[in-house]
Design a binder for these strands. Structure first.
Length: 290
DNA sequence: TGGCTCGGAAGGCTTACGTCA
DNA sequence: AGTGACGTAAGCCTTCCGAGC
């Protein structure tokens, strides 16, 4: 088992960091906090999740499901939910399912063999699709919002609550993570696209400004009215811009009063609105882009 | 009825970790 | 004690394909 940190008493939870499927405030493009590689983001947090400590809202969601009901083999029932059928269990995944799922699978497979014998007759090769009920989907969604991965105990508990096989819960979470990531990628791409467009616009504007300044430089009377040369510096920690004159006495001003106040001289704006959780973004308009 | 989208499921691959020589 | 080989478990990616619109 991979649950080395599971003491068997607590319901530990494995969470992925950085990619942010569950991090609603994720800022994937913050230059000071770049996105992390997906493959190495696994980290385990224990004791973060207890099914029986859920909110009352969650409890109400679960009201339609008998939490005390023993998990019922779907193959025995023929359906896992009022509008679902069940797929056959086969292949590598079924082979490597841990002991935690083994008992249930074995018991289910006995019923499944009966069902297969009297079912549609296409045997193990068929993928019988199921459609999770609304109640099941709601509970899974709510659970996913809290934690996008489950450890075996949580998977078992959730499967029991929803009257599903642990494998179904596992697959649902895998698909949910994958599709969340896809959504996030789409949002990210759109963001970068518009970000580049704005950079191009900014570049054009600055080039025009340079041309205007060069034109002024060519006219001699301008020099007579110019202030002494100034130096712009920015504190790397607080990012405040300081304008200091080389001749006048300590005329340093901060960015708040500087004409350069709104210009980040050293890269993209730090506090630029970043893409939000894609699922939230689907219903909430994105922040205004730069 | 064919096309399309959604989403459950399977298979392959990668990674992390434990065990053992 | 350090190390490489090996096995195992879990997650991710890609693809398939049934169901519903």
């Amino acid at each position: 088992m991979d649950e080395k940190d599971d003491d068997g008493l607590s319901l530990g939870l494995s969470l992925r960091l950085g990619c942010g499927e569950n991090e609603n405030n994720r800022h994937p493009f913050n230059m000071h906090n770049p996105p992390q590689p997906v493959a190495d983001q696994r980290a385990s947090f224990n004791n973060l999740f207890h099914f029986h400590d859920r909110s009352s809202e969650m409890q109400s969601l679960l009201q339609g499901i008998d939490m005390n009901m023993e998990p019922v083999c779907n193959e025995e029932n023929g359906v896992s939910s009022p509008n679902s059928t069940i797929s056959s269990i086969s292949g590598k995944r079924a082979e490597r399912e841990g002991n935690g799922d083994e008992n249930e699978r074995e018991s289910c497979s006995r019923g499944g063999s009966d069902d297969e014998g009297g079912g549609d007759g296409d045997g193990d090769n068929s993928r019988k699709k199921l459609r999770l009920s609304k109640e099941q989907a709601l509970v899974l969604e709510e659970t996913f919002k809290e934690h996008n991965t489950l450890n075996p105990k949580q998977k078992q508990a959730l499967a029991k609550q929803l009257n599903l096989r642990p494998r179904q819960v596992e697959v649902w979470f895998q698909n949910r993570r994958a599709r969340t990531k896809l959504k996030q990628t789409e949002v990210d791409c759109e963001y970068w696209k518009r970000y580049c467009e704005n950079l191009s616009e900014e570049n054009r504007r600055l080039q025009k400004e340079v041309q205007e300044l060069r034109a002024l430089k060519l006219s001699p009377q301008v020099y007579m009215n110019m202030n002494p040369p100034t130096t712009l510096t920015m504190c790397p920690s607080c990012e405040r811009v300081t304008v200091s004159s080389t001749s006048s006495s300590s005329s340093a001003i901060t960015s708040s009063s500087s004409p350069m106040a709104n210009r980040n001289l050293f890269g993209p704006p730090i506090h630029r609105p970043m893409p939000v959780n894609p699922w939230a973004a689907m219903s909430i308009q994105r922040h205004a882009l730069p």
